[in-house]
Nucleic acid binder design. Structure first.
Lengths: 184, 184
DNA sequence: TCTAAAGTTCATTTCTATTTGAACATTCCG
DNA sequence: CGGAATGTTCAAATAGAAATGAACTTTAGA
């Protein structure tokens, strides 16, 4: 949390005790640690990698925007993970990129509304699976109807596919229900 | 599909043309292949390993109960996977174990009602995560209230945690909604 | 223009979940 | 019993996902 000033190591030559850059600023506070764990679990539920949850969890509990290098140090993750993770989060709209005058680094701030993340999950993860299931089911139904199967077998297959269809339909109808429920 | 007779290789000495054990019986029919893929996808959505989906998919489209060795041959999976997978499915109630007189092998049959699988998902996968989230959130709230934080920081933290609480609550209320929707 | 900081990319490594298969246990039947 | 068929277990192999980090590109400002 708090204040991440650009560290122009070159200028400050072991002089003033200017906000002496306490070691703890580079470590997670108890609150940050809990937030990180909370969102790691959440991210995994949504099918995102751990690092995404870590980054969002950190930003969520950060009092002000954080530059990438601080994200890296605090979470102990690599430059690559941080860069990719932040870009993904930005694309999801879960995180906003800002910049500050006199600082070349990009800063990031969490969007505290998880709406976009949930919507992305529904649209990009759940919906495709549902659709995929519908396609496959339709294909099975046409195979079952096609000639070439014993009558008894065909009948059994059709009964089962019908039962499956019922569930598939329920799943499909659940989606808008969830959307309405979460108002998104 | 069809007829899996105990193969007592010892007795049938290259004599009668008794249901000549066509090669195709050991391979997946088109319908079975689709069913397997369908349930592999479904299983993965529910957080189960692929093999669970394969096995269930095969049994779902099988006209009659199948013995373990046929599951192994048709799916090309190992004895271990088949054994463990079938036991898990049996524990979930997704599959029923039977035995046939004059055959030492155990036979398995799919329960065509996916209710149990979905219920297991809700109870064992979703609910624990929700509860875990609630615990962590409560912990964060008590940390935030505790002394030791700047007033401004504390206030910001509390506002954010409140927003999070709102989502956590929604998630919690969604669960019974889903249950009602699926009638389980 | 040149340099160093910042950021990106992606082949390689690391980590984790799943599967395998061989050893072991059990059961059925001669 | 004896032993073959069946089923279980779990250490080790494998595959797939994610993270790393070094090479590369871009940018700012001296």
């Amino acid at each position: 949390m708090l204040n991440y000033v650009s560290r122009n190591d070159s200028i400050r030559e072991e002089s003033q005790p200017v906000t002496p850059e306490r070691e703890t600023d580079r470590e997670l506070s108890e609150l940050e640690r809990e937030s990180v764990e909370y969102f790691v679990s959440f991210a995994q539920m949504m099918g995102f990698p751990k690092s995404i949850g870590q980054i969002y969890g950190l930003l969520f509990m950060s009092f002000e925007p954080i530059p990438v290098d601080v994200v890296i140090e605090k979470l102990g993750i690599s430059k690559g993970s941080a860069s990719q993770g932040l870009n993904l989060l930005r694309d999801l709209g879960a995180v906003k990129a800002l910049h500050r005058d006199g600082d070349r680094r990009g800063f990031f701030q969490a969007d505290f509304d998880v709406t976009r993340i949930v919507r992305h999950f529904l649209d990009e993860k759940l919906l495709p699976r549902l659709t995929n299931g519908e396609d496959r089911l339709a294909r099975m139904q046409s195979i079952a109807k096609a000639t070439g199967l014993e009558n008894s077998v065909q009948e059994v297959a059709e009964v089962r596919l019908q039962a499956l269809q019922k569930w598939q339909n329920r799943g499909r109808r659940l989606l808008p229900l969830i959307r309405r429920f979460f108002r998104l």
